[in-house]
Design a protein around this nucleic acid. Structure first.
Length: 383
DNA sequence: AAAATAGACAACCGCGACGTA
DNA sequence: ATACGTCGCGGTTGTCTATTT
């Protein structure tokens, strides 16, 4: 026996919303609110729409302060970072981007960022669609895998080589891995596991090893992120600026959907992701790193989007400038490098509580998966 | 100029989680 | 404890439009 339909499908209009419908819905909600019941709402205002459809229309389009299109590079970076961290939890990702909806971000990812990540768009920079935001991006100087000058300067210098990480001013934390090790490791990128391991070590969050430092902690009492040993007190350019997420409604986040918020890999770099949670290792990254018909260069080209072209060139042994950045010479820059792929924090209940008890925020390392909580931690930590 | 193709975005659908009686 | 209604999420599909052939 199937599930009962939420509305009478036969008498419900589908498809694009008319301006009249929009106006009806908007004016009603602005005056009366949703009444806590989306199913009953369309009948109240005489709309032949499913309640779910009304909710979606309101949340994704009619709601005040909704931004459409024109994603900034910082937003791109944050989306990618979060996607790497937590996968396709679009609602969580959207919570970090004020004015953006999960649907918007999801579409943007599927149509744009995914291709950037895979490096396809780079080979075909002339997008077919002329009026889209891609033109805007190109116009404003944003390009895939390239340093840009129209934005804040996130670059750092290594041996006179300007490196441009993609993550702006994230809290820098000690990494249990030097760039030299990363660079050395990448010289032997002859299998998928190696690349995965590299990403793990660059990003940290792919591993469940307790030694991995989680760079940012979430203070559930204030619904804010903070950083351990952060040397960057400025939040003005920080995509993890607590103010950006101050509007997270912990009650709006389903708990169990976020339980598996780290990607676990075994010693061989094989993913041990839970199935059916939408929390699998991001498929695109899996494609990128695990597709057998791509050679290493092709795979790494795709990673340029995340790592920066210059870094990728060096990793690929294509340092045409002849500047030796290996041999440990990168260790000084690693604090900055650590921000390359660091996602925001997802922490455990127990460690979060411990942090509260100590009156300070500390590194939160999940003990095991069962104690590792996702969105639920937003409420649990504060309780 | 017309058809084909592809990108972007809006909207739908099914399912799991949650709240409540 | 459980059944039911609702909400919210993520995947997918549909539609429109720009670009290419």
């Amino acid at each position: 026996m199937g599930r009962a339909p939420c509305c009478d499908k036969a008498n419900v209009k589908k498809g694009p919303w008319s301006p009249e419908e929009d106006a009806k819905l908007k004016s009603y909600i602005e005056k009366h609110g949703t009444g806590g019941n989306w199913i009953a709402l369309p009948q109240k205002i005489g709309l032949k729409r499913c309640g779910k459809s009304c909710r979606l229309r309101w949340l994704n389009y009619l709601r005040p302060n909704i931004k459409h299109g024109g994603f900034s590079e910082e937003e791109d970076n944050l989306i990618c970072s979060l996607y790497i961290s937590i996968g396709s939890r679009w609602s969580i990702i959207a919570a970090q981007l004020p004015g953006r909806t999960d649907n918007d971000i999801k579409n943007y990812w599927n149509t744009r960022l995914k291709k950037k990540l895979l490096g396809k768009q780079r080979k075909d920079p002339s997008a077919r669609r002329g009026s889209g935001s891609l033109k805007q991006e190109l116009k404003s100087g944003i390009s895939v895998g390239k340093s840009n000058t129209n934005s804040m300067d996130y670059s750092f210098t290594c041996n006179n080589t300007q490196i441009t990480p993609y993550w702006p001013q994230l809290p820098s934390t000690p990494m249990p891995y030097t760039f030299h090790e990363a660079a050395t490791a990448t010289t032997a990128l002859n299998d998928h596991a190696s690349i995965r391991k590299l990403l793990i070590k660059l990003g940290g969050k792919f591993s469940n090893h307790s030694s991995n430092h989680l760079p940012v902690n979430y203070d559930s009492t204030s619904y804010q992120f903070s950083s351990e040993g952060s040397t960057s007190s400025s939040s003005s350019h920080n995509p993890y600026d607590p103010s950006l997420i101050g509007n997270i409604n912990p009650n709006s986040v389903h708990g169990s959907q976020f339980v598996h918020s780290q990607y676990n890999l075994d010693a061989g770099g094989n993913s041990q992701m839970p199935q059916g949670q939408g929390g699998n290792f991001p498929a695109e990254l899996g494609d990128l790193m695990g597709t057998s018909n791509l050679n290493d260069t092709q795979r790494l080209e795709g990673l340029e989007f995340l790592l920066g072209e210059e870094l990728m060139m060096m990793m690929m042994g294509n340092n045409n400038d002849g500047i030796a950045c290996g041999g440990g010479g990168f260790s000084n820059g690693w604090d900055d490098m650590s921000s390359l792929a660091y996602p925001p924090l997802i922490t455990s209940t127990s460690s979060c509580e411990a942090a509260h008890q100590q009156g300070s925020v500390q590194e939160c390392s999940p003990v095991d998966e069962s104690s590792f909580v996702g969105p639920r931690f937003l409420t649990m930590c504060g309780e």
